[in-house]
Computed example of a mutant assay.
Amino acid sequence: MGSNVKRLDPQFSLATSENRSSQRVVIVAGGAGFIGSNLCRRLLAQGDRVICVDNLETGRLSNIGALMQEPDFRFFLHDIVEPFSI
């Protein structure tokens, strides 16, 4: 599944800038599942940037479909037990 991993784009830099200095970047493993997708929503609502990693074995894209348009949300199709680099 390593080939399905998407790299972060330049618009979603992990480096903090002056206007994002208090904004956290949070990785949610299993973020396309029921609990994970609700956690992603909550984190976005409180102003965090969210990286969702899921292999979609039990999670569903429909759980995070509305989040895909959020500028502070990124989804990576990947099995978290395999090495992962962002």
Rank of each mutant, 00 (worst) to 15 (best):
R60Q: 14
L61Q: 15
G33V: 03
V5A: 11
Q46S: 11
A45D: 01
L56S: 03
L14C: 07
C40S: 04
G31F: 08
N38D: 01
V26M: 15
M1V: 06
L14H: 06
S3A: 12
F75S: 07
R20C: 05
K6G: 08
F84D: 04
P10H: 09
D48I: 01
V53D: 00
L61E: 03
C40Q: 01
E82L: 15
V25D: 07
D54I: 06
H78Y: 05
A15W: 05
R41K: 13
G2V: 11
A15E: 10
R7I: 06
G31L: 04
S13W: 04
Q23P: 02
R41Y: 09
E18M: 10
L77A: 13
A66W: 13
I51A: 05
N63K: 09
V28R: 05
G59F: 06
N19S: 10
L77W: 04
L77C: 10
I51H: 09
D79C: 09
R60V: 11
P83N: 12
S13D: 09
G59M: 05
A66G: 09
F73G: 03
S13I: 07
L39T: 00
N63W: 06
V81T: 15
V53T: 03
C52I: 03
D79T: 10
R74D: 00
K6V: 12
A32E: 00
P83A: 14
I27S: 13
Q69W: 03
S85R: 15
F84T: 14
L67W: 11
F34P: 00
Q69I: 04
C40I: 01
V5N: 12
N38E: 04
V28S: 02
F12V: 13
D79N: 14
I35V: 13
S17D: 02
L44E: 02
V81W: 05
R74S: 01
S17P: 08
D9Q: 14
P71K: 14
K6L: 14
N63C: 04
R60Y: 14
V5F: 06
G36I: 00
R41C: 00
R49K: 14
C40P: 00
F12R: 15
E18V: 03
S3N: 10
D79E: 08
R41Q: 05
F75N: 06
C52L: 13
N4M: 12
A66P: 04
E57L: 15
L8T: 11
L8G: 01
T58I: 08
D48H: 10
L8W: 06
D48E: 11
D54H: 09
G65N: 15
A66I: 03
I51P: 06
D48C: 07
V53M: 08
I35G: 02
D72P: 04
